[in-house]
Simulated scan of single mutants.
Amino acid sequence: MIRSYIAQVTFLCLAAALLLAASQAMRPEGWTLASLYGYWLIRVLIEAALFVAFFEFIDRVPGLKSRIWPVAAIAAVVSLFPFALSITALDLILGLPELDGLNASALPAASSTGTTATGISHIGSFFREVVYLSDNHLALCLLLTAPKLFVFSANSQTGTNAVSQVQSDTAETAISTEKPELQDTPLAPVDTGYGRHLETPLEGDLLRVEAQEHYVRLVSETDSRMLLYRFNDIVAELPDNDGMQVHRSHWVAYEAVVGHSRENGRLWLDLKDGSKVPVSRKYADDVDARFGKEATTQKKAVN
C-alpha cells in the first residue's frame, strides 16, 4: 500500500509539472522544449519531497496524529521556505533571473559601505520571492494531500459502518428475545481498537504483528491482513497478557512461540506457523525471562 501512495504522489507530480510547463508562454533563451519540461519536473519533485517529508514528521507530533488538514497546513507553510531557497539556488545555477530579476552576473560589486544595505535588499527580495512562489506551492501541497485524505476517509467510513452494523445486530437481538429480563442487558462493547478498521474480522487467533512503513501486517494461522495503522498504537491496544513486543517492528503472541534459536549471535523466536521473528537487544532479557525454558521445551515437543 505504501507503494501505491508513492505511485499516486509521483503521478500527481508528473501531471502538475506537465501542466505548468505547458502553460508557460515563453521558454528561456536557448532552452529546448525538453529542457523546459525537465526543469518543471525537477522543480515539482523538489517541492513534493519537501512537503511530504515535513508532513510525515509533523504527523508524528502528539496531538496532531491523523489530523490531516492541520498537519497538511503546517507542512505546507513550513516547507515553503526551504522550497523557495532550493528553487532560488536552482534558478541562479541555471542562469535564470531570480530575486527581483537579479542574477549572479547582474549583482553590483560589494563595497565596505554598501555590503550591509545590499544584504538587507537581498533579504527583502527573498521574502518577496517566497510570496511569489506561495500560490504555486500551496496549490501543489493541496493536491498532494488528496491521497492521504481519501485513505483516511475510507478507513473512517469503514470503521463507522462496522460500528453501526454491530450496534444494529445487537439491538435486533435484544428486541427479538422473549424474556423481559434480557431487555435490560447492556449491549456488548463495540471494538474501538484496530479491529474497527477491518472490513471483516481476522480469521483465527492473532499470532504476530509486523510494522511495514505506515502499515502493519496482522498474521494469524489462517489469515494475513495489511492495515493503515501505527505500530506503537496497535501494540498499546493489545492486551499485555496475550503477547509482547520483541523488536521495534514486531509483536508476538505468547501462544504462538514454540522455540527460540540464535543465528550469528542474534536471537530469533520460532512461531508455530513456521515463521521466525527477530528479537532486538532491548527485549532480549524479557524474552529470555518469558520464553527461555518454555520455548525450548515446546520446540522439542513439536519436533
Score class of each variant (00 low, 15 high):
A162G: 14
R3L: 14
W268M: 10
S79H: 06
A110V: 11
T297W: 09
R208A: 06
L143D: 03
Q245G: 03
Y194R: 00
T115Q: 08
T88A: 13
A188I: 07
E221P: 12
V166R: 15
I93Q: 05
E210D: 06
R262W: 01
T200G: 11
F57I: 09
R230F: 05
F126H: 04
E199A: 15
L138P: 10
G30E: 05
V246I: 06
L267G: 02
W251T: 00
R43K: 10
I42P: 03
A253M: 00
L187E: 11
A53G: 14
F11A: 15
A289V: 01
D286A: 14
T297M: 13
Q183M: 09
P189I: 00
L267T: 09
R67P: 01
W40M: 02
W31Y: 06
T222F: 06
E172N: 09
A48S: 13
G30N: 07
A139R: 07
I175A: 06
L45E: 09
Y132K: 11
S111A: 07
A48T: 04
L187C: 05
F291P: 07
E181V: 02
A48E: 09
T158R: 12
E255V: 00
L187Q: 11
D285F: 06
E129H: 09
L12V: 04
E294L: 13
A16V: 07
L12C: 09
V190Y: 01
Q157Y: 13
R60S: 08
A174S: 11
S134I: 08
R27N: 10
S4G: 15
S112W: 15
N232E: 10
S164Q: 14
T145E: 04
L206R: 01
P108Y: 08
L144Q: 02
R262E: 08
T173K: 12
E56T: 07
C141A: 11
L228A: 07
F55I: 03
D184T: 09
A16E: 05
T32N: 08
Y5A: 13
Y37M: 04
G204F: 05
A109R: 10
I123R: 02
K276I: 01
L90T: 13
F126T: 02
L90R: 03
L144E: 04
D270P: 06
I120G: 12
